[in-house]
Simulated scan of single mutants.
Amino acid sequence: MSALRLSLAIGDYDRIRPLVDGNVRIDGVDPAFSILDPEEIFFRAFKYADFDICELSLSSYTVKTANGDCPYVAVPVFPSRAFRHTSVYIRTDRGIAKPEDLRGKRVGVPEYQLTANVWVRAILEEYGVKPADITWVRGGYEHPGREEKIALRLPADVRLESLPAGATISSALADGTIDAVIGPRAPSCFERGHPQVGRLWSDPVAAASEWYGKHRIFPIMHVLGIRKDVAEQHRYLPGALVKAFEEAKSFALARLSNTAATKVTLPFVEERLQHARALMGEDFWSYGLEANRAGIDTFLAAHHAQGLSSRRLAPEDLFHPASLESFRL
């Protein structure tokens, strides 16, 4: 029997490269890979269901799953994870020295429901800063006119505005129209070294490490989804994907751990890898539901409390049942 020819859209990560390069195979599948930026994948997936298999925003997927209108079903493979203490950029001339100082401020977001923003709002709540304490201003980072890709029904006390026509998040932060930015990317004004733009947490690695020590959560950003009609037609596929992506991650970590010659263009990779394992354990980028149940449930609670999901989902609600089981010898 010939292998299934399925489209698979995903970002360019070391942990999926063994699949793209053919070093790891997906049982019964001949994938046609599209290596794309996540924003393009999410737009095409949620608007047109363009791909058979693809990376999905955890937040957008949760919104659609809670509403019962998601064209995809996920498996517990997490292509992207990140500590989001790196994701808050501030005007340094507005008296913002700590999270509590964001109360009453105007904060730019590319989309309100982005996964990174859900996690940051959950962190801010630990400092007593609620979503209603901030005026949220939506717009494109570098290109004007970006809108929410998912329709939202936010709580009445959440103030969400749009930038004026022609304005961008980066330009608004640079000219002081907004006081801060929360999002998955650094605005270009920060990258260019604007003298009055900085990070809320000046040492985000230390802040994130402390947060991890308290919560034992490595925030999940993205999941892997299968279009529901494809999953229904090929019942073995969810389990086959988990198996293959696990193998690919192990392959990538073995490469990264081989310190005879550095595999990435960055000094001190070995030391950062040792630090991550000392802080988080050997399997610091774990797949599977049980290893990530607490983190997923924390996210789902925050997502619902922030008014993004119409009902409080349980972690099991996100994943195809066949992806939660595997054989044992």
Rank of each mutant, 00 (worst) to 15 (best):
L279W: 05
S59H: 05
V205H: 13
K64Q: 13
Y141K: 07
G239F: 00
L154Y: 05
K105Y: 05
R227F: 06
P184K: 01
R227M: 03
G198F: 04
G28F: 00
Y72C: 06
G288T: 03
M280N: 08
A302R: 07
D297E: 15
F268T: 10
V158R: 07
R255S: 10
I169Y: 05
L6S: 05
Q113S: 13
E148W: 05
E247G: 15
E55W: 06
E142T: 13
G11L: 04
F33C: 08
E125D: 10
E126K: 14
I41D: 00
I134E: 12
A151Q: 13
Y48C: 02
T62I: 00
W201I: 10
G139P: 01
F268E: 12
G281L: 07
D157S: 14
L36Y: 05
P18M: 09
L200C: 07
R311N: 03
V181R: 05
G22I: 08
G225E: 08
E55C: 04
A97N: 11
F299H: 06
R91S: 03
R185D: 15
G176R: 13
Y287R: 08
Y236D: 11
D27A: 12
L4Y: 02
E191C: 09
I26F: 05
A172V: 09
G28W: 00
D157A: 14
R227Q: 13
R25E: 09
K249C: 08
T265A: 14
A66V: 05
G166A: 09
G145W: 12
G128H: 10
G68T: 11
R44F: 08
V242W: 03
W201S: 03
K243E: 15
G176L: 05
T262A: 14
Y127W: 14
E147G: 08
V181Q: 11
R311Q: 13
D69E: 13
N117Q: 11
A167G: 01
S309M: 02
V63M: 12
V63D: 12
F190E: 06
G225R: 09
I41S: 02
L36M: 13
Q233Y: 00
I217P: 10
F46N: 10
F245Q: 04
A208K: 01
V63R: 12
G22E: 06
I217A: 07
K243D: 14
S171D: 14
I182D: 02
L273M: 12
V205T: 14
G128S: 09
A3C: 01
W119H: 15
G198C: 08
V230K: 02
A322E: 03
E161K: 03
F43K: 15
D101P: 07
A74Q: 09
P204Q: 06
L173I: 10
D229L: 02
A156I: 01
A167E: 15
R5V: 04
I26E: 07
R91A: 01
D50K: 10
W119E: 06
T177L: 12
L124P: 01
I123H: 04
V118G: 09
R255K: 15
S57T: 12
A3N: 11
R138A: 03
S286W: 02
V264F: 08
A9I: 04
G28Q: 00
R293M: 01
D297Q: 15
R5Y: 00
P131T: 12
H194F: 06
S188A: 14
R17V: 02
D157Y: 03
S257N: 14
C54L: 05
G104K: 13
E147N: 09
C54N: 03
